[in-house]
């Protein structure tokens, strides 16, 4: 492994008094798939959003593909073209058809001509299994289909890295599988991926590494079978027991739920 594709150094992020990230160091190698897990409010989404500077870090540095994203003089638009981002709420452009959702960014940002943009769009729609929806509008698609279009839209820009922010959390359970299948094939093709997720089976099967975050720090990380299968830390064990078998969780006194961020 040479230079890491993503390098996060001493990252802090505060929203007012709320110190969300308290010193994160993380390296992700080229082609590596890293799943970030942890309770809500642990800062995992904020970490992801700091990588493409949707959130401005309070302190620390982020490098993507050797370029410092946090450098005040960097051309952030140029850096973001190399980073694909997939959101929990899909964020497709509702006034554009599926194909236009994929072609408009290519044409406006990458200055591709119409024919080239449409070719790339068709390729990527086929890649996520939605070639037949090319002319549809987002409102006519199911949540799972919208999310696959969102993935295709990011891929059409030819990114080196893909960031996924809880991509299946807003989906009906029966639609989760299609989205995960697309992500799995993407991982197999060697894409560098950073995935914030609650899908433990996906993390176990696809991730090269699982990072467990809690309270704004990385508590432990390692191979998925180790972090999910045999966690070393009490906090990790506690989180996993609740997420893997929510029905078995007991009412706690004064711990997670009353904290508000639990």
């Amino acid at each position: 492994m040479t230079t890491p594709e993503i390098r996060v150094q001493g990252l802090h992020k505060s929203f007012g008094d709320n110190h969300v990230l308290r010193g994160i160091d993380l390296e992700i190698a080229q082609g590596e798939v890293v799943c970030v897990i942890g309770p809500s409010g642990s800062g995992k989404s904020t970490l992801l959003r700091c990588v493409n500077l949707l959130e401005e870090p309070t302190e620390g540095q982020v490098f993507v593909g050797g370029t410092e994203v946090t450098d005040p003089d960097v051309d952030i638009d140029a850096v973001r073209r190399r980073i694909g981002m997939v959101f929990q709420q899909f964020n497709l452009f509702p006034h554009l058809s599926v194909t236009e959702n994929l072609t408009l960014p290519q044409r406006r940002v990458l200055r591709r001509d119409k024919a080239a943009a449409e070719r790339v769009a068709a390729e990527n729609l086929a890649r996520v299994g939605l070639a037949e929806k090319a002319g549809a509008y987002p409102s006519a698609l199911s949540g799972g289909q919208q999310q696959r279009v969102a993935i295709a839209r990011a891929l059409a820009m030819g990114p080196e890295v893909m960031l996924f922010d809880e991509p299946t959390s807003a989906l009906d359970p029966e639609l989760v599988g299609d989205v995960l299948a697309v992500m799995r094939s993407l991982a197999r093709e060697g894409m560098t991926m950073m995935v914030v997720t609650h899908e433990m089976s996906f993390a176990r099967e696809v991730a090269d590494r699982v990072v467990f975050m809690d309270g704004g720090v990385i508590v432990e990380q390692g191979r998925p079978e180790q972090v999910i299968g045999a966690p070393r830390h009490e906090r990790t064990r506690h989180f996993l027991s609740r997420i893997l078998d929510p029905a078995m969780a007991e009412v706690e006194e004064g711990v997670a739920d009353q904290g508000g961020t639990g």
Partner: peptide, 18 residues
């Protein structure tokens, strides 16, 4: 217009004006 629209556009590399 939902905030996510601007975020999606910016993360695709659009400048704020564009």
């Amino acid at each position: 217009v939902p905030k996510g629209q601007m975020e999606a556009a910016r993360s695709l590399g659009f400048s704020p004006a564009r």
